[in-house]
């Protein structure tokens, strides 16, 4: 144990404080600090900061593109819904229009048929009147013919005419 004591003693053996060591250590450490800051820690911190910013930027960009995608999907969905309702409206409209057109056509056809019927009726009436008139004429001439045939010998034509006229007059009055 003797040399241990001696070993401890040597530190203080030279008595005075190693003032030079203090100065040297201090200067050395400050120099090391400055050098490391310039050549090692500075660049390293720079790159770490850069990476931090890069990551933050990437996260921000990802977040932004995500919201953008979300917005787009929402927009597409909205558009799809709109298109669907539009198509529905178109079909509805077409159906309504078809109905209206059908009604119109039917109405038109009905009036047309009415008109035709009316015209036909009118014509029939006319024809009937015409026919009645013709028949009346025919009957008159026929009866004259018959009468003339029957009484040809007894009365002259003039008398006959007079007679017939009288007769017709009478008939007209009777009516």
């Amino acid at each position: 144990m003797n040399f241990l004591v001696l070993g401890a003693a040597t530190e203080g053996a030279h008595g005075g404080l190693n003032t030079g060591d203090i100065l040297f250590q201090l200067v050395m450490f400050l120099v090391l600090l400055a050098l490391l800051k310039k050549f090692a820690w500075g660049p390293l911190m720079g790159i770490m900061k850069e990476r931090e910013e890069h990551i933050a930027g990437e996260i921000g960009a990802a977040e932004k593109s995500r919201t953008e995608a979300h917005k787009l999907v929402e927009e597409q969905r909205e558009m799809l819904k709109q298109a669907r309702t539009e198509a529905q409206g178109l079909i509805e409209n077409a159906k309504k229009q078809g109905d209206v057109q059908r009604d119109e056509i039917i109405a038109l056809a009905r009036t047309e048929s009415d008109r035709i019927k009316e015209a036909a009726k009118l014509e029939i009436e006319q024809q009937k009147e015409q026919a009645v008139a013709a028949i009346r004429e025919q009957v008159a001439s026929l009866s004259v013919l018959i009468a003339s045939k029957v009484i040809e010998k007894e009365i002259s034509a003039a008398d006959q005419e007079k007679l017939i006229n009288e007769y017709i007059q009478e008939a007209g009055n009777a009516r």
Binding site: F3, L4, L6, G7, A9, T10, E11, A13, H14, G16, L17, N18, T19, G20, D21, L23, F24, Q25
Partner: peptide, 20 residues
């Protein structure tokens, strides 16, 4: 164990060369 220290005096300051 009983090692000495290589001391040197410069400008009144004591330097231990081993420490340096």
């Amino acid at each position: 164990m009983a090692h000495g220290a290589p001391l040197i005096d410069i400008f009144g300051l004591t330097f231990n060369k081993a420490n340096m």
